[in-house]
């Protein structure tokens, strides 16, 4: 029994959860919003292109913005547009589910930080968790200044930029200049590189990152949809864990 108990450590030791005073809440919310702000140029560009594409399949500007506001998942919205004129609603919803399965892994990795929160908080944070706001929030947790209010601020920042840029794309239509000429699609990977720096601590994280990078590239070439992100996330972190074990056994 004792062995089983020592096998478990309180999550707070690992995940630096500190209670928050009321005065820090709004500051933390604002901080989360500001931390996510550098990621918004990529979101705007993606949103504009989405808006143009949505008009092309016959959605009205209100419907275009509405899908963004309530679904809030860019790549699955693009997939839905691609299927819009030919597929059944069931097929579109199923495709959305499959594309967004990567969020299961993100939800699992952020869950230990949220375990002290009531269910309604978890639901609120899950509602608008995007790749960008997840990365912003968990990087802050990693640096010991994350909180549910920070997470909410990051979620709000991406959401408040995402649906209006879709609306702008739908209203402007084809008159939007080709933004890819300016290489703004580079903002996404660069922002993620900036966030990733918080997570490099020792050999395990380097192994996890390396294996995930190789798996993701191979997976993106050979697998459909977004499977490469889940596959790389699972395999990379397993490889990192194995690297720790091996290192521990040797020392």
């Amino acid at each position: 029994m004792e062995a089983a108990v020592s096998f478990c450590v309180p999550a707070a030791e690992w995940y630096h959860i500190s209670p928050m005073s009321a005065t820090h809440r709004s500051a933390s919310l604002a901080r989360g919003f500001l931390d996510a702000l550098p990621l918004t140029p990529g979101v705007v560009m993606f949103g504009l292109v989405y808006g143009v594409a949505a008009r092309a399949v016959g959605l009205s500007p209100v419907e275009t913005a509405g899908m963004s506001a309530i679904v809030h998942a860019g790549s699955s919205q693009f997939a839905a547009l691609g299927m819009w004129l030919s597929a059944t609603p069931g097929a579109i919803v199923l495709t959305t589910l499959i594309i967004n399965l990567r969020h299961l892994l993100m939800g699992a990795s952020v869950a230990p930080y949220l375990r002290h929160l009531p269910l309604r908080w978890k639901m609120l944070l899950a509602l608008w968790m995007s790749d960008e706001s997840y990365a912003t929030a968990i990087a802050a947790y990693e640096r010991g200044r994350g909180s549910e209010w920070h997470f909410l601020g990051a979620n709000l920042c991406i959401w408040i930029v995402w649906w209006p840029s879709g609306l702008a794309g739908a209203l402007a239509g084809q008159s939007i200049p080709d933004l890819s000429r300016y290489g703004l699609e580079m903002v996404f990977p660069l922002a993620f590189i900036g966030l990733a720096a918080s997570f490099f601590k020792g050999r395990a994280s380097a192994v996890a990152a390396g294996v995930a990078a190789v798996t993701a590239v191979l997976g993106a070439v050979w697998l459909p949809g977004n499977w490469h992100i889940i596959g790389a996330g699972l395999l990379g972190s397993l490889a990192g864990l194995a690297a720790v074990r091996e290192g521990g056994a040797r020392s």
Binding site: W14, A108, A208, A212, A220, A232
Partner: peptide, 27 residues
């Protein structure tokens, strides 16, 4: 995942963000 998790699971979950970020960056 709201209960206390075994140590290896926590270790694993701690490595997930860097793996996912790599998986978003590299491609």
């Amino acid at each position: 995942l709201s209960r206390e998790l075994p140590r290896p699971v926590l270790r694993y979950l701690q490595l997930v963000p860097v793996a996912i970020l790599s998986a978003l960056i590299a491609p």
